[in-house]
């Protein structure tokens, strides 16, 4: 591997890690508020779909992104309402959102385009890429980190912002209190339900952005079930991240790099079906290692 292909690998890894990072940060926000967002997969899918359709009909990529954020947040709010108001089960409602998003997007895609597979007949827009001045002019570094999609930079800037929000702002600290000890938070006058509602809405908004990246950046169309389990991989990234935003981002990048390796391996003579399992096997192994390490630490501190 020469230097330029290393730079190219880094560039692809950053691109592949973008939706995982965004979605994992979304999962982190809701998990810290004590509500696991299994529906993130469906929220991503709905965001990807809304971005394509709205940008195609309005001619504006920005409105497409706004629609993706809105639909994600709306589904998050729906999940919170199902759990708090209708007293439905959190996990099962999340699964329901995934099933509904898969069925609903296929249904609407067919009603709008007459095709159940892809949206290529829609003139949808993509969001722009950004060249970083100065840094982008450097030979190899520029190739690796400049000229990326605007949402890639958003994702990696969002991680420290979410970290600041969760650890340094009163709202973020209360949100974590709600997740840590809801009874204590309630006793201190924090409205637990309201925090969980907005945490799930924010989580969904992140999922929506992650979806918009897939359909308005990674590729420029919507395909049936195009998220392909990335929301679930994001759940794993959040677990591996140990509850911190930067840890979550790093885990997402590790898993994204695994996926990048599998993408670059696909031309290499190995059966492509087996190579395609890599992005799903690596999170399982990572969770296993994570759990074993946690167990060892727990045993040490007990002894």
């Amino acid at each position: 591997m020469d230097a330029s292909s290393v730079a190219e690998f880094v560039a692809v890894a950053l691109r592949v890690s973008t939706p995982l990072t965004l979605a994992a940060l979304g999962v982190l926000i809701s998990t810290r508020a004590g509500v696991l967002n299994i529906g993130i997969e469906g929220m991503m899918l709905a965001g990807a779909f809304a971005g394509v359709v709205v940008s195609a009909f309005t001619g504006s990529a920005l409105l497409g992104l706004a629609a993706a954020i809105l639909i994600g947040a709306a589904l998050g709010a729906l999940l919170a309402t199902a759990v708090h108001v209708a007293k439905a089960d959190l996990i099962l409602s999340g699964i329901a959102i995934n099933i509904a998003a898969a069925a609903g997007t296929t249904l609407l895609l067919f009603l709008i385009t007459g095709s159940k597979g892809v949206s290529s007949s829609l003139p949808s827009k993509t969001l722009p890429t950004i060249d970083i001045p100065l840094l982008g002019d450097l030979p190899l570094v520029g190739m690796a980190v400049s000229g990326h999609h605007i949402l890639t930079y958003t994702a990696f800037l969002a991680a420290p912002l979410v970290a600041l929000f969760l650890t340094r702002t009163p709202v973020g600290i209360r949100l974590r209190a709600v997740g840590e000890k809801p009874e204590a938070a309630a006793a201190a006058g924090v409205n637990v339900r309201r925090y969980q509602f907005w945490a799930l809405a924010a989580s969904g908004a992140f999922g929506g952005v992650a979806g918009a990246f897939l359909s308005m950046g990674y590729v420029s169309w919507f395909g049936q079930n195009m998220t392909a389990g990335r929301g679930f991989i994001a759940l794993a990234a959040e677990v591996m991240g140990g509850g911190s935003a930067l840890g979550t981002m790093l885990s997402a990048v590790v898993l994204g790099t695994a996926e990048t390796i599998s993408i670059t391996m696909q031309g290499g003579g190995l059966p492509s079906e087996l190579v395609q399992t890599v992005p799903y096997i690596v999170p399982i192994l990572a969770l296993l290692v994570h759990a074993m390490r946690r167990r060892r630490i727990a045993r040490k501190s007990a002894a």
Partner: peptide, 22 residues
């Protein structure tokens, strides 16, 4: 009419069947 409508019904049934409040 695409048959995916049935998927939506499934999802709603799943959501509502656990909804104790309903």
């Amino acid at each position: 009419v695409p048959i995916e409508g049935v998927g939506l019904i499934n999802a709603l049934v799943l959501l509502i069947a656990t909804a104790a409040a309903i």
